[in-house]
Nucleic acid binder design. Structure first.
Lengths: 233, 233
DNA sequence: AATTGTGAATTCCTTCACAGCC
DNA sequence: GGCTGTGAAGGAATTCACAATT
C-alpha cells in the first residue's frame, strides 16, 4: 500500500478490472490470478498487480485473488457502495437519451433531476416520467436532492456558465459532453466525453492507413479515458 | 517532417488545435504563434509545435502560423476534406439520440443509415425522417452507401458480433458505445466511448478527495481520448 | 509450485532550451 | 526581435524479472 499519487490511468483500469470481476463472478469463478485475468481480457498481468497494490495487498501468493473479495474492494475504492445521485443539464437529443439510458438507471448511478432553460421543454416528461425543470432552481434542487454528479449536455457556448452555476451549488464532479474545454475550480473534477475528437480520430485513421494504429490495447484506450478530463475542448 | 510513428495522443490534439483555429478564424485572427495559442487555450507551446512538425513545416519563424492555412492543413491531415459517411447500429435510446444529434449531421460526418435487429423498430423513422433498417442487410448497404464509419450502440453482448459483421463488409473504423472490449482484426480501428468508466472515475474522485486530481489539463484529457481505443471494455 | 508485490529496466510522452530562420 | 523546429533532458507509465510468500 503506497502513498504515491495515483494516476487516473490506474483508476480507470480499476473500472475495467471491476467489469472483468463481475463477469468472472457471474461465471462462478472463485479465484483468479493476474495472469489468467490478463489472458482472458487482454491485459498485462504486472500492470494489474501493480494497480491493485497501490490500494492494498489483496492477493494471496501462490493462489491469486478471491474474485468476490477483490470485487468488493474495488467497489469500495471506486466509491460505488452507495448510489450516486446525478442530474442532467440540457435536455436536447443527447441529454434526453442519457436520461433514458438504462446503463445509468440501474445500479450505481441514479438520475434524479433534469434541467433545461428552454421554456418549451420545462414540464416535459421523459419516458420514465421524470419532469424537466427550469434552470433557475438548479442550485437549491442540487442541494435538496443531494446531487453529487452533474452531466452537462448543453451547447458549447453555455457549458462554462453551467459549470459555474453547479460549482456554486457545491457539485464537485461533472461529466461534460459539450465540445469545449472547461476550467474547473480547484477541487472540482470535470471529465469530458468529446465525440468530435473520437470521430476525427477515426477519420485520421481512415486517411492515414499506413499508421497501423490497430489492436491498441488498454494503453491507448485508457489514455483517452484519462485525457477526457484535462483541458481545452 | 518525420517518418516516426505518430502517437494517437498527438492526433487527438490535432482535433483540439483545429477547434482552436476555428475559433481564432471566427474572431478574425490571421496569424497566431504557438505561445499565443497555448496561453489562450491552456496548452503547451512546445507540444503544439512538435505535434505540427510531425506533419510538415507549417509555421513561419518570427511570425507564427497562418490561421486559415494551418486550419486547412489540419483538415487535410485529419481526413476531413470530404464528408465521412456513417451508420449507426442499435437504435435504443443512445443510438436514437446519436441519430438526431446535430453535431454529426452538420459538417464532416453524415449519418446515412440506421440498423436494428428488433422487428418492432424496423421501419420506424427518426425525427429527420431516416428509416431504421433490418440488420440482415447491413453488409450490402454498407457497401452500396459507401459507409466508412460504424457507430455501435447495441448492448454489450451483441457488440462483438456486430463488429465481426461490419468488418466483413469492409468497415475499418468503429466507434463503440457498448461497455465491452472488442478485439478488432488488424487494420480495423475501434474507438471506445465508455460512460461507465467516466462515471466511475468521477465516483472515485468523490470517494477520494485527497487525490487532488484537479485542474488536469490536456495531458489527462487526451490520454483518455487515446485510451478510448485500446482494449477491453 | 504457483503467484504476488515490487525494484529495475524500458518505453513512451512532455517540456526545456536553443540553434536556425524570417 | 520573435518565433519555429528540434535535440536533449526530464518525467511518467508500462513491462520485465525476481525475491518473497503461501
Amino acid at each position: 500500500m503506497k502513498t504515491e499519487k495515483i494516476s487516473e490511468l490506474t483508476t480507470n483500469r480499476l473500472s475495467i478490472y471491476l467489469r472483468c470481476l463481475n463477469e468472472l463472478e457471474a461465471s462462478g469463478v472463485e479465484t483468479v490470478s493476474s495472469q489468467a485475468m490478463a489472458d482472458q481480457f487482454n491485459l498485462n498481468s504486472a500492470q494489474i498487480r501493480k494497480d491493485l497494490a497501490y490500494f492494498g495487498e489483496f492477493g494471496v501468493r501462490g493462489v491469486g485473488y478471491y474474485v468476490e473479495e477483490l470485487r468488493l474492494h474495488l467497489m469500495k475504492i471506486l466509491g460505488l457502495t452507495e448510489t450516486r445521485r446525478v442530474a442532467i443539464i440540457g435536455l436536447g437529443n443527447l441529454g434526453m437519451a442519457l436520461a433514458n439510458y438504462q446503463g445509468f438507471n440501474q445500479g450505481d448511478f441514479e438520475i434524479v433531476a433534469l434541467f433545461d432553460d428552454d421554456p418549451a421543454k420545462i414540464g416535459v416528461r421523459t419516458r420514465s416520467g421524470m419532469e424537466i425543470q427550469g434552470a433557475q432552481n438548479i442550485g437549491e434542487i442540487i442541494e435538496s436532492e443531494g446531487i453529487e454528479i452533474v452531466i452537462i449536455a448543453v451547447p458549447a457556448t453555455a457549458a462554462e456558465r453551467v459549470l459555474e452555476q453547479v460549482t456554486e451549488a457545491g457539485v464537485r464532479a461533472v461529466l461534460n459532453f459539450a465540445p469545449v474545454h472547461l476550467n474547473p475550480r480547484p477541487g472540482v473534477k470535470v471529465k469530458n466525453v468529446d465525440l468530435t475528437i473520437s470521430l476525427e480520430s477515426l477519420s485520421y485513421f481512415l486517411a492515414n492507413p499506413s499508421d497501423e494504429a490497430l489492436n491498441v490495447h488498454y494503453r491507448e484506450f485508457l489514455r483517452q479515458e484519462a485525457s477526457n478530463n484535462g483541458a481545452l475542448g
